[in-house]
Nucleic acid binder design. Structure first.
Lengths: 149, 149
DNA sequence: TCTTGACCTCGAGTGCACTCGAAGGCGTAC
DNA sequence: GTACGCCTTCGAGTGCACTCGAGGTCAAGA
């Protein structure tokens, strides 16, 4: 893991594509990445921030709000910027606490339904999250989505 | 809250639009709703199921998987259908347990960052989730999204 | 020097999840 | 009976978040 990556390496490290990394930079979801000879160089600082942004996005913060957060960060450590960034994150944290409740409730309901199904035909079923030691991970574990309510 | 609703009432009750309710029916995200005189009548059964579907969608299950779940349900209580439904829900529940961990971690990191910001300029800030008794809820609490990672 | 490969920008294309408008049907109120 | 309001279907339009291709640049290796 070099401390300084090309866009292809950064893509690999984030799970995004190079296309998407450029796109995120273009729309201001991440800051402009420093160049050397015209090419983007992703350092530790950049990678750390990208991962943070992905954590925000992955937990349902809107692109709009992330853009705003990045914009505020670029303004530097002024009282205004700091305060607004805090507010943005605080609102997201509040949203996540709601999500937490909703998720927990949903898990309970699902488990009930699953138990009901299993009680009707208690045959073999999905092998439960016990690693089946299969070398081929090509199964179709179902897709999930990124957006929240 | 009548036990039998028009599409407009159902929309109100779910927070969706009538457009979206028809769209969901069209793409098989919900079963065809019984009609009377050509018009959809939403009974308790329908409403309960729609709310369940919204819970799945709201916690990040893909439209594709929900469609599959609904399709299986229409097949009736055959062993195959029951088993597959159980698997689908079990996989979603497993996904939610992962989400739970991710969310919790994100909340911790956000709280740290927020505390840092507050420590720099500990002025007034967002009034924390204490209802401000304002009669105008027209403020711009920031948007959140539905998709998960 | 010349080739190769990974990178660059720009603009256009894609798929999804809605969102809406047009044209028409049905049932109650006057 | 006709006006009204809410419903119907169908097809087209919208906005977002990518996704890709074309044409060009740059540095390293044969």
């Amino acid at each position: 893991m070099p401390t300084s990556m090309t866009i292809a390496e950064a893509a690999l490290a984030t799970g995004l594509t190079a296309y998407t990394l450029r796109y995120y930079e273009q729309i201001g979801l991440i800051d402009p990445v420093p160049r050397r000879g015209g090419q983007r160089v992703y350092g530790e600082t950049e990678m750390r921030f990208i991962h943070f942004v992905l954590k925000l996005r992955g937990t349902g913060m809107s692109m709009r709000d992330i853009q705003e957060y990045v914009r505020l960060r670029r303004l530097g450590e002024t009282p205004e910027s700091i305060r607004l960034r805090g507010d943005l994150l605080a609102r997201h944290a509040a949203y996540l606490r709601e999500q937490l409740v909703d998720l927990t409730d949903t898990i309970v309901r699902l488990d009930e339904k699953i138990a009901l199904y299993r009680s009707i035909y208690p045959d073999e079923s999905i092998p439960d999250p016990v690693a089946p030691a299969s070398p081929a991970p090509a199964a179709d574990t179902p897709s999930h989505r990124r957006k929240h309510a």
